[in-house]
Simulated scan of single mutants.
Amino acid sequence: MASHFRRTDDERAGSHRPARGAAGSHARRSDGGVRTRRGGDESYHAPSSNPHAAGIPHRADAAYIPAVGGPDDGRSRRSSRFVETDPYDLSGRRSRDPRKRAARIVSVLLFVVGIALIATAAGMWIYNQWQYHEQDRINEELASFADVSDNGTTPPQVDWAGLKAINDEVVGWVQIPGTVVNFPVYQASDNEKYLNQSAEGGYAVGGQIFMDYANTPPGMVDGQSLIYGHHMRNGTMFKTVSDMTNQEMFDGVGTVWYVTEDATYELEPLLVYETDASDPEARRFTFASDDELHDYLSGLLGKAVTSRADAADVISRTSHVLTLCTCNYDHGDNGRTLLVCVPKDEANGTAASDGSAPADAATTTE
C-alpha cells in the first residue's frame, strides 16, 4: 500500500522531524507555527503576520490581478493586436469601433421595425375580425325579415314591406336549405355598388347579395338571371357555392329557392363550372331561342367540375336558369365559380308547353 503514496520532503529528511506528542495531532514549531496532521497529509499554518514563516516563496512583484482592470491600473489599454469579439471590451466600456456602433444602431432599428410590424399585423387581424363580425350582424338582421322552414320544403315567407323600408332596391330572396345561403337580393344601376355596401348604405366587407344590373328585374325573366355574392373566408355569404365544386356537396343540395314579391321559384342544381372574371360568356342573359340557350348550357356542361348525372337531358328541356356566382381563390382573386340552377318543373319535364311557368314551379304570391 505504501507505493500508492508519495513521500514528502519532510519524510525523506526524517532526522529533522520533531517527535510527536502523546496525542499525535499537533506539534509546536520553533518559529511559532503549528503543524497539523490532516487526512494523511501535512500542512503548516503560520501566523498571518508572517507569511514567509510557512515556507511559501515570495516574489516582490506578486499581486492579485483582477479579470477586469480598474481605470488607472494600466491594463485597460488595448494592444494594437487586440481583436474584439463582442460589443463590450474587458474594461466594461462599450466599443468605440464605428462599425460596431453602426451595427448596434441597425439592430435597434430592426428591433423597433419588427415590433411595429407585429403590432400592425395584430391590428389588421383585429380589424378584420371586427369587419366579419359586423357583416354577420348585418346578415342576421336582414335574415329576420324572412321565415324559412326547417326542412326547406316550403319557400321563405318574406316581409317585403320591412325590407323596402330599409332599401327599396331589393328584388328577391335566395335560399339554399341546409346551408348559410338565406339572403335578400338587391339590384343597382351597376355591379359595383353592393360589393362593399350594406343595404343601409354603410360599408360592409361582404356587401350584399345582388343581381346583375343588366338582368331584367326581378329575375327569372331572361334566359339566364345572374346573382353575385362574396366568398367569405369564414364560410358565410356564397361560400356554399364554391364548396359545391365537390360532387358530394353538390349532390347534397336538392332545392334552391328564389322568391320575388310576385312569384316563387323552386329550382335545383344543374352544374357547377369555373372561369375567370374576364369571361364574357358568363354574362349572357338573353338568347334568340331555347335552342341557343341549350347550346350555351351544353358548352358550360363541357367544362363543368360537378353536375347532375342527367344534365344533358335536363338541358334539352330548359328555358330559364338562375346562376349564382362567387369568387374562388385557386388563381388569386380573379377566379369565379358559378352554380347553374334550373326550375324543377323544367328539370322534371312538367313545364307548360307554351313556355309559361306552371303553378308548381312559379306561383304567384299575393
Rank of each mutant, 00 (worst) to 15 (best):
P269N: 09
D291F: 05
M249E: 13
A304W: 09
Y265N: 04
L270I: 04
V272C: 01
A277T: 14
V272Y: 01
H294K: 13
S307Q: 15
T318H: 03
A282V: 12
D279C: 06
C327D: 07
C325N: 13
E274W: 02
G299W: 01
P280Y: 08
Y265R: 05
A309T: 15
D262N: 15
L301W: 02
D279A: 09
L270W: 00
A263T: 10
L267V: 04
E281P: 02
A277Q: 14
R283I: 15
M249S: 10
P280C: 06
L267P: 02
F287G: 11
L293F: 00
S316T: 14
L271V: 09
A277F: 12
L293K: 01
M249H: 12
T255G: 11
L300I: 00
D276M: 10
R317P: 02
L300P: 00
D276H: 10
T275L: 01
W257I: 03
L267N: 07
V321W: 00
P269V: 01
L271Q: 11
L270Y: 00
H320K: 14
T286H: 12
D279K: 02
D310T: 08
L270K: 04
D295G: 13
A288W: 00
R283E: 15
V259D: 07
D295F: 06
C327L: 07
F285L: 15
S298V: 11
T326S: 03
V305S: 05
D313N: 13
K303N: 12
D291P: 08
T323I: 12
D313T: 14
A277R: 10
F285C: 06
A309M: 10
W257A: 10
D276Q: 12
S319M: 11
D251S: 13
M249C: 07
L324K: 03
L301P: 02
L322C: 06
V314T: 11
E268D: 11
K303M: 11
R308C: 02
E292L: 09
P280D: 07
A288S: 14
S316I: 08
A263H: 12
L271N: 04
L293C: 08
T286A: 14
A311P: 01
P280R: 10
S298C: 09
A304N: 04
R283F: 15
L293R: 03
A309N: 13
D291K: 14
E281Y: 11
T260G: 03
V253I: 15
